[in-house]
């Protein structure tokens, strides 16, 4: 029986008040800010011609991945689409390696052969980085299958957007995941626009209910509030890990930048974006809460800001200094053992 809830009650206050330590809260702040600054730097470097091709920025959505990753344990699988820089950083992948992949250099996670949309880390159980909208959903479901097959207690966090949710393969995956009770936590990042198409123009019905027919519980979560995300991820991550089958978390979020760097964003008003930024920014609001509740001080936050600035600057420098791939790399990694 599907239990679907519209807007899970804000867990933020309960979480902030009790079960999460101040140190952990500062980690979330730090991770969100690192993603924000990393993406801003990526945008700059794209503008300077140092990054080519497609580059999809995660700015505005940081609370989603940081909140979800906060409840995962090492060995849990993570997979997402092409808007993936934030996920890699939240998985603990090195900013230098990610940025050097954006610049197409040999120090990148894929030795410069993948680019913005295609990075992986076996060590951090990050399985990409996929460029075909929705294709990561059956693959993530297969990672969940492998956890169940191996009975290793891990789950698969499978991220996808409000555009992917209309792909048929998503429902093929839901069916099998529910049928076989696979430990898959589906994280539907609803940033309101599938490229240039607003949700209302592309998707009928409520997205968190899209698993109902399969008996997959779905909840809608304030994805601009890292503690609300964390609380929902905790509850439904536990559910998935306990062997009850998959669950869907619809994250209500928003991307500030265009779909990709070349997006003129004519499909929405500047006022709409400005309103979300001023009223619902996940980092600004969280920062204010940390100070108001006495979890930290202005000085401590400034220290974090400085630390992040250094990390991002070093990543950008590394990404420019790392050489281009060897010419011989053209022919490697086509087949294992070839």
């Amino acid at each position: 029986m599907a239990t679907t809830k519209k807007l899970a009650a804000s867990h933020a206050e309960a979480a902030a008040a009790g079960d999460v330590s101040s140190a952990e809260l500062l980690c979330y702040y730090r991770d969100m800010l690192l993603i924000r600054r990393f993406e801003e730097k990526s945008g700059q470097m794209y503008g300077m011609g140092l990054i080519g091709g497609f580059c999809h920025l995660y700015i505005g959505q940081e609370a989603v991945v940081v909140g979800i990753q906060s409840v995962l344990i090492p060995g849990d699988s993570v997979i997402t689409s092409y808007r993936d820089h934030g996920h890699m950083i939240a998985c603990g992948m090195d900013s230098k390696g990610v940025m050097a992949e954006l610049t197409g250099r040999r120090g990148g996670y894929s030795k410069g052969k993948g680019g913005s949309m295609h990075m992986f880390s076996r060590e951090k159980a990050f399985y990409g980085g996929h460029g075909i909208v929705g294709a990561q959903v059956p693959i993530g479901t297969g990672l969940a299958f492998s956890h169940k097959y191996k009975n290793d207690g891990h789950i698969s966090a499978t991220y996808f957007g409000d555009g992917a949710v209309n792909q048929g393969q998503v429902y093929e995956s839901f069916n099998m995941a529910a049928l076989w009770k696979l430990p898959c936590l589906y994280v539907l990042e609803n940033n309101k626009y599938a490229m240039g198409t607003a949700q209302a123009r592309a998707a009928a019905g409520e997205l968190y209910q899209r698993g109902m027919a399969y008996g997959i519980p779905g909840v809608q979560v304030n994805g601009m509030d890292v503690l609300a995300v964390r609380a929902a991820a905790q509850e439904w991550g536990d559910y998935v890990r306990s062997g009850k089958g998959p669950a869907i978390l619809e994250m209500q979020t928003y991307r500030y930048r265009g779909h990709s760097m070349s997006d003129p964003a004519k499909y929405r008003s500047k006022e709409e974006v400005a309103k979300v930024r001023s009223e619902a920014d996940p980092i600004d609001n969280f920062r204010r809460m940390l100070l108001e509740k006495g979890h930290t001080t202005e000085d401590a936050l400034k220290e974090i800001d400085r630390e992040i600035k250094v990390i991002v600057t070093e990543a950008a420098e590394f990404a420019q200094q790392s050489p281009e791939p060897e010419i011989s790399e053209l022919w490697t990694d086509v087949l294992v053992g070839a």
Binding site: Y127, I139, G142
Partner: peptide, 12 residues
């Protein structure tokens, strides 16, 4: 769906 799922299982 199952081809994609199997690819994920192979990655896993």
């Amino acid at each position: 769906g199952f081809a994609g799922l199997a690819v994920g299982a192979a990655f896993g």
